[in-house]
């Protein structure tokens, strides 16, 4: 069963043009969605955190939009600007061959937003990664624990104010100093 109708002809058919798609979304959620921000051909919509699940369900299920593939969930730390965290959702619609980015702005030291695993189960591991490295919690996630770092790791390393675990390179002028501090295994 081919999900991409255009392949019979060999080129994608755009059922919905870009502006129509944006208008459809913004007219359906006038106060929850703002934008669009256009940059080098990419469209970004800013979504309010409390209406995220509604917007995502609409984007996935509406027959004219059909954003069925969630490619990526990632977060950016804009420290020291406020709001500090931006969580990006990169969506793709196979039928319409359309890309879209959703952005949610969060603030505070312990930000949290609702999880979209009920809409796209594939968000599961991406959200765990964002929690692990950035410290953004996802409410309603079935399994909110660290994925990459050991369970007893303290802190979230990809934040801008996280500690640098940088080891000083050993040159001739500081050779002995670093040699004495390096924990060599004896046996």
């Amino acid at each position: 069963m081919s999900r991409w109708i255009g392949d019979a002809i060999g080129c994608p058919i755009h059922f919905v043009c870009e502006t129509h798609m944006i208008d459809l979304i913004t007219s359906h959620f006038p106060e929850a969605v703002s934008g669009p921000i256009e940059f080098h051909g990419e469209t970004t919509l800013v979504v309010r955190p409390d209406r995220l699940i509604e917007v995502c369900t609409f984007l996935r299920d509406d027959p004219a939009l059909k954003f069925d593939l969630l490619s990526d969930v990632s977060a950016v730390d804009h420290f020291p600007a406020s709001p500090r965290f931006a969580v990006n959702y990169h969506l793709y619609s196979l039928e319409n061959n359309r890309e879209l980015r959703l952005k949610v702005w969060l603030d505070g030291e312990q930000p949290h937003v609702s999880s979209v695993t009920s809409v796209w189960p594939g968000a599961n591991w991406h959200e765990r990664e964002v929690w692990d490295l950035m410290g953004v919690k996802f409410d309603g996630h079935p399994d909110m624990r660290r994925i990459f770092l050991p369970e007893d790791f303290l802190g979230h390393p990809l934040r801008k104010d996280a500690a640098q675990f940088y080891e000083e390179p050993q040159f001739t002028h500081n050779f002995d100093l670093i040699e004495s501090q390096k924990p060599y295994a004896k046996e």
Partner: peptide, 12 residues
């Protein structure tokens, strides 16, 4: 640096 708030579950 904030502490890991979830229960510390080591995956043994």
């Amino acid at each position: 640096m904030e502490q890991n708030e979830t229960q510390l579950m080591e995956l043994t």
